[in-house]
Amino acid sequence: MELVFQFRKKDSFIHRLDPVTKTIFLFAMSFLAFGSFKTWPQLVLLVLCLVIAIGLARLSPGEIWRGTKWLGLACIFFFVVQTYMLKVPGQIALFSLGHKVIYLETVDYTTAVSLRIYTIFLVSFIFIRTTHPRDLAVGFVQILNIPYKVPYAFFLALRIIPMIEEEARCINEAHKVRGYGEKTGFKDRLENIKRFTVPLLVRSLRDASITTHSMESRGFGAHPRRNYVEQVRMTTTGKVISAICVLAVIVWYVLIFTGVIPFRYSVQ
């Protein structure tokens, strides 16, 4: 069974991009989304993200829906509640709900915030669906020259977390067979947690110790750098996209700070 929120191998333009470019794209879209409390820029960003997701990352609409539906529904809920609850008065009244007047400025603001949350989530979804964690870690070492021990800490977390989960499951099952959990008073619950945590901790430390022992005995840490058979490089396309992303963020914020584009409706 495939998880919705994990890498899926495909041959697409976005899949082929190096992970550093995709990271820059992720941050650029997030900065742009944070750079406005008005609806139209958020709509433009959302449409752009959807075009990229479907057209360039070859994610199907169904896939996008499955991956983002719960957050989408949360955004709608957020929009409704915020629109009704927001106390800041606007100037252009749209309609009334009982004694509550709903202003255009309020709707614009809450729409923008809701769309922003969804857009940032969507762009993160595109990133995760198209970037293998291993390429991300190796890419950062090879392209950005970060120390190679950092991505291996990340790998270890990826490897150890499922092992700890499996260990926890085994201990839980074994304790249930013994009748643990039958007593449900507060003191008993505390005792249960202690009984569960100690063996889990001991086993996890033991596994981690074997892993590091195995790494060291295969020469890990012997030299300040290491070789890589699989090369992750930033292509010219990647460099151009990264430059466009950085430029777009700079231009957008310059336009906002110089007042050419209003940050939001000015509410009196």
Binding site: Y152, F155, L156, L158, D207, I210, H213, R218
Partner: peptide, 14 residues
């Protein structure tokens, strides 16, 4: 080269 009993704990890559 050292090989351990539990392969899960000694394999570190994806």
């Amino acid at each position: 080269g050292l090989v351990f009993q539990d392969p899960e704990s000694q394999l570190v890559n994806i």
